[in-house]
Design a protein around this nucleic acid. Structure first.
Lengths: 191, 191, 191, 191
DNA sequence: AATGAATGAGATTTCATTCAT
DNA sequence: AATGAATGAAATCTCATTCAT
């Protein structure tokens, strides 16, 4: 009847994948349990509601993400160095486990308020890099917020392209080109 | 620009807004009826199911969208001319009614199969423009799929930025800069 | 499939009876629906949760109760007159619909906070009668709170006795005796 | 008075309190374990089911209760003597540990079948005293069942009053007055 | 045509109990 | 013996849809 084996990991992985594949609302607790190989109740030992599961999954992965970002930042100096390193890091993460990447993209809107100006917030991070580059005269004056949005678009959309089969895997192979596009963009005001 | 979108009535408008605000699965018929100021039953006089409502909403707007795009294409020749015109058209649509724009983005994945190679499909449209420009030697040879993704990113992400308060309204005011970024990107292979 | 007939009354009556018979926690939505002859969902058209149903049932009946009390109070003057009238009114209510009476007794503890010193609160009412009688020297000085508790005990416990088959129905037939007991109690300090 | 109640341990105490505070059905095994500072599994080492825990708690306390009553009965003769002693015993028990008193009141209806005519059954006890007093002509002829209910009301309701903050603690201080009320009640038929 | 009550299927959640560790 | 994860059954609740009025 009872089968006390540690299933927390399996539950969370199943949830992560299903949320990405079918959306959060499109995934039932029953489906998560079923894919994890447990009964529905098992889920509630680890998370007190479906919503709680979503949040836990988000913050857990978000923090790993943030840690990676911090590491990259600490190891590189100046936009020309840092941006390519970040692009490669993002793309590497996507290639390694696109579910994690996509899940963060998927639910960030709903949870964004709680993370708004957190320096682990990737958008915020890019924004800081841009502002710092402007301040240090590494790039011409420009609307930092708009540039940030454009840079984010350059990084995220190839991942979306891979997902929908338009862009070839692995994503890292496109890192050099995307990095160049990013750097060119930053210099756009020059001419 | 003429209003590109017409809404049959309060029900459709309420549904559109709620779908954007909370997602399709996250919105109940009751909520739609309530916001529209009608009862649940009344909704079924106009649409035979929720799914039908979603599809009707999508195709109705998608066709107006497509018509707009055709108009723009007919009036412009060559990437250098066409791309800025399209960017302005997209941004204009967003400024005029961001719900429509976001709704199309939101459900296109689910319904795109049925319009896959339709030239009103924004991604497909961009892809064709890129391939044609390459064919006509207007731009250097490059991975058309990747470039398409990047161009899409440059257009969509500023809209996302506006939504989350990072980029200033109206979006059209950023059209010239974004257009330049797009054109530069297309020439990136040159050097 | 659907059968839109007004079932609100049936649902509330079924709930009232079951709550009295098996306790609130001991009664499931399914049982209520089943006794009312509807499906479980029907309940949620009228009350947004089980808890809400309990509260609605309580306040609805509590107000009828309160109205009755006010009527009796308005029609009688002085303890000697009022107390017997109230006892008879209580007992009459019990005989007429013991479910209502018992339900109020059953859940009042949980909801008492919201009704604490409301003058429709039967205990509060008795308390006021006692204090007024003392003030007007109709009865000797005494601990009004204790006397109130004792009077309440004299009225409630016969009803409990009826419920458990110890005291014979109808309860009204015992009203004269109980009233005498109440009045004697009030005079107890005299000697 | 000697502590009339012994609790095997933390689990039983936690259960007793929670059952009184939230009702038996309203209390989960998890809550009991949590308040007792043990895990759910540990609970099943001592009691084979929740129902078993309730019964154990009831009978354990009920027997101590019964023993106390027997002691009181053995030491007193005649209503005039016995009733005041019992009132004081009840009130003393309440003051010492109102949880025990209330728990017995709470579950007796569900479990009383099994101790129906047991003389530790408080209602049955009072009933016997009344009938014996009538038989011995210590009090006038009267409806023993009704009188029993009224006496029970006189004893129980002050305890309820204390619980809801209407009557002042300790309850014993009211014992003389309540006893007099009980004895007067018994003589009510005289006049 | 409109209304809003009810259906019925399924979703989420709770919980007494069991059992591998 | 203790722990706490998992079971399985049942409870509460949701919601697209139907239909009597």
């Amino acid at each position: 009847m009872a089968r006390p084996v540690r299933m927390k990991g399996a539950i969370e992985r199943a949830a992560l994948e299903l949320f990405v594949e079918r959306g959060v609302d499109g995934t039932s607790i029953r489906e998560i349990a079923s894919r994890a190989g447990v009964t529905e109740g098992a889920l509630y030992r680890h998370h007190k509601s479906k919503d709680d599961l979503v949040r836990a999954l988000f913050f857990e992965n978000y923090h790993l993400f943030a840690a990676m970002i911090k590491r990259v930042r600490a190891a590189h100096d100046g936009v020309e160095d840092l941006l390519p390193a970040l692009v490669e890091a993002f793309f590497g993460l996507y290639d390694e486990d696109h579910y994690v990447f996509e899940f963060i993209m998927l639910v960030q809107h709903a949870l964004l308020d709680e993370v708004k100006t957190d320096e682990a917030n990737p958008v915020e991070l890019v924004s800081r890099i841009v502002r710092e580059a402007i301040r240090k005269r590494q790039v011409p004056k420009q609307d930092a917020n708009l540039t940030t949005a454009l840079l984010v678009g350059l990084v995220i959309q190839p991942a979306v392209g891979v997902r929908y089969g338009r862009v070839k895997r692995p994503l890292v192979r496109h890192a050099p080109f995307v990095s160049r596009a990013c750097l060119e963009l930053l210099q756009l005001g020059k001419s």
